[in-house]
Simulated scan of single mutants.
Amino acid sequence: MTTPKPHLFVFGPGYSASPVMARALENGWNVSASYRDDAKADALNAKGITAVPLDEAALQGALATCTHLLTSVAPGPHGDPVLPIIAQQAERLHALRWVGYLSSTNVYGNHDGGWVDENTPATPSLERGKRRVEAELSWGDFCERSDSTLHIFRLAGIYGPGRNAVRTVLDGRAKRIFKEGQLFSRIHVSDIEEAVWRAMNSGLTSRIFNLADDAPAPPQDIIEKAALALGKPVPAIIPLDEANLSPMARSFYEESKRVKNDRVKKDLSLSLRYPSFDSALNDLIAHETGAQP
C-alpha cells in the first residue's frame, strides 16, 4: 500500500507563504490555496497549486485530504476570518495533523528595547497585537480539539526580494525616521520558509517559535546602509514628531524590543541564511538592480 502524498492547504498565499508552497511542490506534495479573485487563481494554478475558492463545497473537497494547514491571514476586528471556515469543515478534516499559524512579534508589546523570548508574557499594547493573541489562543483550542499539532510562528519585520530598504531607496521613498532608543527585529522571507518547512516536517509537539534575525537595529541605520551600498545620497534624519506618517506607520514606533530566536535554532537546528540585514544586503542589491552579486 502506498502512502498518500502530504497535502498542504494555505489560507492567505501571499508573500510569506508562497516560498513554503513552492518548497512543498518541489518535494512532491500536493498543494492547494484559497483565493478571492480570478487573477489570483490563475497565478496559483500556473505554479501547479490548486486554487480553491472560499465557498463551502469547494473547500469541502480540498480540505478532506489536507494533512498540513498553513494560515497567514491576519485577524480583523471580528477575529480570525479563517477559523469560522475551518469550524464548518472540522468534521471533514480527518487527515489533518499539523497547523502552522503565521503570527507577529507585536504580541509582546513594548519592552523599551529589551529582549523577549517565547516565554515572555504576551502583553500587546496595539489593537492588532491583541487580535493576534486572541487568534493564537483560538487556534490552540481548535488544534487541541482536532488532535493536531500547532506551531505558531511569531514573525519580526518581514523583508526580502521586492520588499526591502534597497527597493525603498531605489524608488525614492526612503526616510530615516528617528526615535531615541527605537529598535526593530527583522526576518528574511527565505528564513521564514526554512523554519516553517522544518517545523512542518519535524514531528515536534505544539509550540511557539520566534522568527527574527540576530541583529535588531534602529530603522534609520538600515536605510543608511542601503543608501551607502547603492552609492545613493543618505536621506536626512527626520525626528518622529516631524515625520508625516500614517497612523498605521506611526504605530510601529510605539513598541521597541529585541526578539530572541534561540528556540528555532535549537528545536529545528536552524542556521539562519541571513542572520542580519548586512548579510542580506548584497543579495538584495543584486535582485533589485539585476547586478551580479
Rank of each mutant, 00 (worst) to 15 (best):
I223Q: 03
E255N: 09
V234S: 03
S256P: 10
P235M: 04
L230T: 00
A215L: 13
I237T: 14
P235N: 07
G231D: 07
P218W: 11
S246E: 12
G231M: 03
Q220F: 06
K225Q: 15
Y253E: 08
S256C: 04
S256H: 10
A226D: 07
D241L: 04
I238Y: 06
P219W: 06
L240M: 07
P233G: 02
K225A: 13
A215I: 04
L245N: 06
L228P: 00
P235A: 04
D241S: 13
Q220P: 00
D221S: 11
A243R: 11
P219V: 08
P239W: 02
K232R: 14
P219H: 05
D241T: 13
A215K: 14
I238R: 08
I222Y: 01
A243T: 11
A227F: 03
K232W: 02
A236C: 01
I237P: 00
D221F: 01
I237L: 10
I237V: 14
A249D: 15
K232D: 05
S251N: 10
L228N: 09
G231Y: 03
L230W: 00
P216R: 11
D221A: 12
P216L: 12
I237E: 15
L230N: 00
Q220R: 02
S256V: 10
P233L: 03
P233S: 05
E224P: 00
A243P: 10
E255I: 07
P235T: 01
E242Q: 14
D241N: 12
D221K: 11
D241R: 12
N244T: 13
I238V: 15
A227G: 07
S251K: 09
I238W: 05
E224C: 07
I223Y: 02
F252K: 06
P235I: 02
Q220W: 14
A226S: 13
L230I: 00
P247I: 03
S246P: 05
A217M: 14
M248S: 08
V234C: 07
R250M: 03
P247R: 05
A217F: 10
Y253C: 01
P233Y: 01
I223G: 01
A215M: 14
L230F: 00
P216V: 09
P218G: 08
I223L: 04
F252L: 03
A227P: 01
L228V: 15
D241C: 00
D221L: 06
D241E: 15
E224A: 14
P235Y: 05
M248R: 11
E242D: 15
K225I: 04
P219M: 07
P218K: 11
A249P: 06
A236L: 09
A215C: 15
E224D: 13
P216T: 12
I223D: 02
E242R: 12
S246F: 03
P219C: 07
P247A: 04
E254K: 11
L240E: 13
A243F: 10
P218T: 09
A243H: 10
